[in-house]
């Protein structure tokens, strides 16, 4: 019984360990907009299609179920993977939106964000380069 309790306690503490990766939300170097966490949430959930200054925003997400995507979904969108899937199915089948474009990895994301001034995406903070601007870290 004691062993069971220990295993149980260990499992719980594993679950509550602080998240390891820091997420950096990034935009093009020419994009000087300032945003709040709530603005970012709204753009990635398709509630609004522009930055606070009115410039059209194109959100791009990391490949689903990778650690960085899971971390972003949890920390920034405050949703579980199944909640986010349910959320998008609601919008897709009612003509209210399309889920953000998904790219395979951080290199591809860095490449498009550094060239397209309307894009907004996120990477592991360890992958930050000088070719993009970091908006906010989570």
């Amino acid at each position: 019984m004691k062993t069971l309790i220990l295993i149980f306690a260990a499992t719980i503490s594993l679950h509550s360990l602080p998240s390891y990766a820091e997420i950096a939300v990034i935009v093009n170097l020419n994009n000087s907009v300032t945003v709040s966490a709530e603005d970012i949430k709204g753009i990635f959930l398709g509630k609004i299609n522009s930055f606070p200054n009115g410039v059209p925003a194109i959100p791009i997400v990391q490949k689903a179920k990778t650690p960085v995507a899971d971390e972003f979904t949890k920390k920034v969108l405050h949703k579980t993977n199944s909640q986010i899937q349910a959320y998008w199915s609601k919008l897709i089948f009612t003509g209210q939106g399309t889920s953000p474009k998904e790219l395979q990895n951080s290199e591809k994301i860095l490449s498009i964000v550094s060239t397209n001034p309307n894009t907004i995406s996120y990477i592991n903070a360890a992958d930050i380069t000088e070719k993009i601007r970091v908006l906010i870290k989570f």
Partner: peptide
């Protein structure tokens, strides 16, 4: 424009909150 659109055709009557997606069981 960026934040508005117009739809023409056959659609759901959006009278209830769940009207538009009441068939998509996965979404609720």
């Amino acid at each position: 424009n960026t934040n508005s659109n117009v739809q023409i055709g056959r659609m759901r009557m959006p009278v209830y909150y769940y009207s538009d997606f009441m068939d998509v069981g996965y979404a609720y």
